[in-house]
Simulated assay, not measured.
Amino acid sequence: MGTVAQPGEYAPDEDSGQILPPAAEKTREMHFWVRAAIIAALGVAILTLLGSALLSISHAPRPHRLPLGYVGAESGRTAMAEQAGSALDLVTYGSRAQAVEGIRRLDTYGAVVTGIDSTELLKSTAASPQVAAALTAMFSTSDGTSGGPTTVSEISPLPAGDSAGGSLAILLQVVVLVGTIGSVGLGRLVPRYRANWARGELPVLFLVLYALVVGAGISTLAHAFGVGNHVHYWKLALCLALINLAVTASVSALVSLIGSAGAGVGGVLYFLLGTPISGAATALPMMPVAWRDFGQVLPPGAGATLLRRVLYFPDASLTTPLLTLGLFAGTGAVVLGAVNLVAGAQRRNSLANLP
């Protein structure tokens, strides 16, 4: 049974068993409170960041410069732009066919076609059920810009296997979460693997193989539940693998540099913050512009854009999301390989000295 030090006596050190003088014990207690204050400050900072992001998105969603096509007289466009203010960003097309093409390329979330005595709203539920419902409600409460009745036409409906439109957000959450787990797992493997400049490809090879397994696994589940059956299996699997690799490689690079804290940074930045502002569940135009733009330069946002275009908009360009994801995956792999090279030259397991 341990002894309890009385006032003025030396206190035993629980780690080493040595007796500490009162001054040393007081210094140790002060260090505890300093570190506790740092942890509390970090918690408040994360709370502020996540709280402000999530509340600003969900407390009262409204459109911010929502791209909407317009076909008709210039006077009607001017009147609609003045009435909408900053809510809409009108894109003028010369014909209904051009407006439909713009929707299918995901350049706009819908279009308004005005005639002499009628107005037609072209909506795109696949682009965002939230935006499609808002546009329908907006134009059904008015007589249209031409003064006649408004008809609603669906241009890009959701497929039968994803009639609610929620599968995209679920796929993204799973692939990002599994990516974070893979990064943590690699961090545990590295200390038990003696780095070697001649075999520096092993951690990177693990991440690539892991991403392929994850992509194939999620694609198999998606097809089993009827999600994305209209998309080639390996096209969907490789897209999911690239999203996973962008997450795992970049987070693993952080882990190799700063240790286990890198996994925490990746989890907060990608999963807790990046997923809600990715546009997978909440339409990008319904978010404040700052969060929307920030979300698209992170792997979850680029991944959500890639999946939406692959699943619902085959005519849309994939260049931007592919470049973003490739940049994160490539940079992470290069950093991880470089760290392994340096550690191998120094005959160490890793620079971060992971636990």
Rank of each mutant, 00 (worst) to 15 (best):
P300Q: 07
G182V: 11
Y270N: 15
G215N: 06
L254W: 07
T48D: 11
A280S: 14
E120G: 01
P276K: 04
G179K: 02
E29Y: 12
R77F: 05
L122K: 03
A290L: 10
P321T: 07
V91C: 02
A280G: 13
P63C: 02
V227D: 06
G144N: 11
L351K: 00
T275E: 13
V113N: 06
E82Q: 15
I19K: 08
A302Q: 08
G332M: 04
L202Q: 14
D293H: 06
S52Q: 10
V71D: 10
E25D: 07
G226V: 08
V100G: 02
S163G: 07
T48N: 05
A198Y: 08
P276S: 12
G295D: 07
G147K: 05
D143S: 11
A132F: 01
G148W: 05
V251S: 07
L298E: 07
Y193D: 09
G179D: 08
E154W: 03
T136K: 07
A261C: 01
P355E: 11
P191R: 13
L66V: 10
L242F: 04
S260C: 00
N229Q: 14
P157A: 10
F206E: 02
R62K: 15
P149G: 04
R77P: 02
H232M: 02
N340K: 06
G295P: 02
S16V: 03
A60K: 09
G228R: 01
I258N: 01
L269M: 15
A222I: 06
S16G: 08
A45K: 00
V131T: 03
L88Q: 04
G332H: 08
I103Y: 01
S140K: 10
T320A: 11
L90F: 14
V113S: 12
T151E: 15
S317T: 12
A304C: 03
G187C: 12
L177H: 01
F294V: 13
S156H: 00
I46T: 04
D162K: 05
S140C: 00
R77S: 07
D293G: 01
T145V: 15
G187F: 02
A84D: 04
K26L: 06
P355D: 03
H59E: 14
V268Q: 05
A338C: 08
L47V: 08
G215D: 09
R348K: 13
K123R: 14
T324E: 11
S75C: 01
L318Y: 09
P321C: 02
F32N: 11
F328I: 02
A99S: 13
Q98T: 11
T324H: 00
G144P: 10
D315H: 14
A137Y: 05
A198I: 04
A137G: 09
L341K: 01
V255S: 05
P157Y: 03
R194M: 12
Y10R: 15
E29M: 04
S124G: 13
G102P: 12
D143C: 01
A198W: 10
G8Q: 03
L135G: 07
G330N: 03
L47N: 03
D117Q: 02
V289A: 14
G72Y: 04
D315K: 15
N340Y: 09
L122D: 06
I38Q: 08
A338F: 14
P67F: 01
L172S: 05
T180Q: 15
L298Q: 05
Q173E: 09
G326P: 09
L221D: 03
D293P: 01
A111T: 11
L240W: 07
L298S: 00
L341Y: 10
